[in-house]
């Protein structure tokens, strides 16, 4: 399992995709940070910054996950992994954590931005930590969705686009609320919405429910990926 993790991690930096992700993410998050926080000049509020980052995830994270399984299928190396002494769960987990490592490391590097806040203002450290933790978990959920979708196709582009659509759906379902009369549907949409749940963190409220929700989504999609492979073997 560790072998797959290591290979996957390396492959991000053999192809340009790893560099593109890191550069694009750092640049975009930096720009958003300048516009939404530094240039506002009033206080050290980071709420808008974190909310905006979610939209960056929608585009950026599928870049990391699109190749995970789609590429193996196309290169027919999938057969090698499936006939080697590694469990399916191990294989899926290794790929998930490889993508997650790149994402988490890049996010942690982007936290350098916060130094500016401490130099010129009085940011709330608890909010920074709470929101960062939540963001790391949201990222995990998005990556799990991407892993699942990548296992369904052998075309990386389709994997990326489908992942963007699904994550976008999870993010913005609450935005549909103003068009819907039924209170029940509204509450369901709110419940599913990653965005709605995240807003609590951005304003300093540590929401355990949301944490559980993000982790559950990650596990659910990783489990579905394992099922995809099991089903294919038995079909």
């Amino acid at each position: 399992m560790f072998a797959i993790y290591k290979r996957e991690l390396r492959s991000y930096f053999i192809s340009p995709i790893g560099y593109i992700f890191v550069a694009a993410y750092l640049a975009t998050s930096g720009i958003i940070f300048s516009i939404c926080t530094l240039n506002q000049g009033q206080d050290s509020s980071v709420a808008t910054y974190f909310m905006m980052l979610l939209y960056v995830f929608v585009i950026a994270l599928p870049l990391l996950t699109m190749k995970l399984f789609a590429d193996e299928k196309k290169a027919r190396t999938e057969q090698l992994l499936l006939t080697s002494p590694v469990s399916l769960m191990g294989m899926v987990a290794a790929k998930f954590f490889a993508a997650y490592t790149i994402f988490a490391a890049t996010y942690l590097v982007s936290c350098i931005d916060f130094i500016a806040l401490y130099n010129y203002g009085t940011p709330n450290t608890a909010i920074l930590f709470g929101s960062s933790l939540a963001l790391l978990l949201v990222g995990g959920a998005c990556i799990a969705v991407g892993v699942f979708i990548s296992s369904l196709t052998e075309n990386q582009l389709i994997a990326a686009l489908a992942t963007i659509l699904v994550i976008l759906f999870f993010m913005v379902t609450s935005a549909l609320n103003s068009y819907i009369d039924s209170a029940i549907i509204r509450s369901v949409l709110n419940w599913v919405s990653i965005f709605e749940r995240f807003s609590n963190f951005a304003y300093g409220y540590f929401d355990i429910n949301a944490i559980v929700y993000y982790v559950s989504i990650s596990f659910a999609f990783l489990f579905l990926t394992v099922r995809v492979y099991e089903k294919r073997r038995w079909s």
Binding site: A3, K6, R7, A75, E78, L80, L81, S84
Partner: peptide, 19 residues
């Protein structure tokens, strides 16, 4: 089932770890 972007050395070492 070859990873085309790897060298033979890297590939065989990967297989060694994988197994």
């Amino acid at each position: 089932p070859l990873y085309l972007e790897m060298t033979v050395k890297e590939y065989l070492n990967f297989i060694y770890d994988l197994k």
